[in-house]
Each structure stands twice: as structure tokens, then as C-alpha cells.
Design a protein around this nucleic acid. Structure first.
Length: 274
DNA sequence: ATTGGGACCTGCTCGC
DNA sequence: TGCGAGCAGGTCCCAA
């Protein structure tokens, strides 16, 4: 899915374009993508005005003036597109919110893994929040916290970085990139990292996420992440190792390698990452 | 506690 | 050109 930087870019795009608009109705073709069920969701958003757009981990959150909150999960391919009703159709759209003044919010998802859940209020939002760790760009993600959680597990460091209970929002791309810049082999047991390495990794996780946001996310292929305008992001132009198997490492000239770790493609430079 | 695998779905790319 | 294998940014569930 879009990871934190992609979702944050989407959040900013939505904030600019749909706040103040009212949802008139919804249409959909894949009922299981609507939670708790299509009827409740459709009823709960009807005539509701959008007052704010937030984000938690990889979920965009659309706040309504009736206290309801729409939480989206984009999984691997989800897109949220803001379009005019007169615009041509987009591929893979399974849910459309018809807004006033001729606007539409379209939810496209090639694989239908994604979903949107309507929760009644902020209290109920905590259910979605339950198992999520701290936001890596917030104050709770302190070096102290990072040292503590890494010291407790022997799992491979990349798998720990992608564990949403440990840090909310890091996925396969940014885990690989952060480990490259920290010079750490993704397979190393988390608790085997030195104090210095943990410190470096902590900094680099924050840094790559901010870079990702700066370049408006990463669009590596078609039918993947898009901004709400349909424009791609640009962070893929700055990848150091992700999706670069067989290519030259820009730092040492050695070959970037792809391995399988925890069932996920994992890219790293064996020479730079020890 | 941790891992490995499959499931959820669909489409694209690559090698033969 | 055609065909099957492998791949995809995420998460959940189950068995070992």
C-alpha cells in the first residue's frame, strides 16, 4: 500500500480539496469493501459535511460534521481521487462518494483488498487504533522507545520496522531505504544492533519518511499509488535500493541484491549494509 | 514467541 | 505471439 508518506500526501490533497463539501450519496460495486456494511455506511454519510482530513498510520481519516469518521485502508493499490463528475472514469473504481458542487471522491483499488470503515465518533476510532504503535514523525517515537522495543526481539530488523505495532506507517519501501542509509543489513536480529546503530536507524527512519513526503510519495509502477489529482509521486526517482536488484549501488558501486525476508522482497547493498 | 505459508484479488512483466 | 511463473507498496489467520 501506500505507506506513510504516500498517505500523508493524499491527506494533504484531500484537506485542500474536499473540506467544506457535503456527501450527497455513495455508489459501490464491491460490498465487502464497505464497513461495517454498505447500508450503515451509506446512511451515516448522507448529507454529512466534511470538516477535516486526518491520518493515522497508513489510514486517511475523513471527519464529518455528524461526528462520524471515514477511515480508509488503501492496502497495496488503493487510490483516492478527487474528480469532477464530468471527468472521464478512472480504472478500478469500486466506490464513489458524490459530493456537492459537482465533485466526486473515487476509491480505486485494483485488488479489492482495501476498505473504508465508518466509525460513529472519536471514541470508536480507538478500535482501529488499538494495535498501532506510535507515529514515527510524532514525539512518541523517541530514541528511548526505539531502543526499548528493538532490545526485546530477535526478529530481523526489517520485519520489526514494518511491524505496525512497533511503528505505525513504515512499509516495505521505507524500511529498505532507512536500513540502507543506516548501513544495516535487513536480516540482522533487532536486539543485536549496537547503540550507535539504533540511533542512526532512528534518525534515518524519520529522515526517509520526510523525504518521501517532500517528494509527494513513491509511484513505482502503474495501478499503484497516485495523489488525489491522479499525479504520480516522485520519491521513486530517489530510491537508493528499493526495486533496484542487480543495479549498481550509488554509494559503493557494488550490486544491489534482492532477497526474500518475511515473505517480502527485500533490497539492500551487501557491501554497504553490514 | 516467532516463522512460514496461504489467503484475500487482479494485472503486469519477463523468460522461454 | 503465446503461456505460465513470478511479482506487487498490506494485513490477517493458522499451523508448526
Amino acid at each position: 500500500m501506500p505507506e506513510l508518506p504516500e498517505v500523508e500526501t493524499i491527506r494533504r490533497g484531500l484537506e485542500k480539496r474536499i473540506v467544506g463539501l457535503t456527501i450527497q450519496k455513495v455508489s459501490y460495486d464491491t460490498p465487502k469493501m464497505l464497513r461495517p456494511n454498505p447500508e450503515k455506511l451509506a446512511k451515516g454519510v448522507k448529507e454529512a459535511k466534511i470538516v477535516k482530513v486526518g491520518r493515522r498510520a497508513k489510514m486517511p481519516l475523513v471527519f464529518l460534521d455528524n461526528q462520524g469518521i471515514l477511515a480508509f485502508h488503501l492496502k497495496l493499490n488503493g487510490q483516492l481521487l478527487v474528480r469532477r463528475a464530468s471527468d472521464p472514469p478512472d480504472k478500478y473504481v469500486h466506490l464513489t462518494f458524490f459530493l456537492d458542487r459537482g465533485w466526486e471522491l473515487r476509491f480505486a483499488e485494483l485488488r479489492k483488498f482495501g476498505w473504508v470503515k465508518l466509525v460513529k465518533n472519536k471514541e470508536e476510532l480507538k478500535v482501529l487504533d488499538g494495535d498501532l504503535g506510535p507515529e514515527p514523525l510524532g514525539d512518541d517515537f523517541s530514541l528511548k522507545y526505539f531502543q526499548k522495543v528493538l532490545g526485546k526481539t530477535a526478529r530481523a530488523i526489517k520485519i520489526v520496522l514494518m511491524d505496525q505495532k512497533i511503528i505505525a506507517g513504515v512499509g516495505n519501501i521505507y524500511a529498505a531505504e532507512a536500513l540502507f542509509y543506516a548501513g544495516i543489513d535487513p536480516q540482522r536480529p533487532a536486539k543485536g544492533l549496537t547503540e550507535e546503530e539504533v540511533k542512526r536507524l532512528h534518525q534515518k527512519v524519520i529522515w526517509v519518511l520526510k523525504q518521501g513526503i517532500k517528494y509527494e510519495g513513491a509511484t513505482d509502477r502503474d495501478a499503484a499509488y497516485r495523489q488525489v489529482t491522479g499525479e504520480p509521486g516522485h520519491y521513486q526517482e530517489h530510491f537508493a535500493v528499493y526495486a533496484k536488484a542487480g543495479e549498481k549501488c550509488h554509494k559503493c558501486g557494488g550490486k544491489v541484491k534482492r532477497i526474500n525476508l518475511g515473505g517480502r522482497g527485500t533490497y539492500f547493498c551487501p557491501k554497504c549494509q553490514k
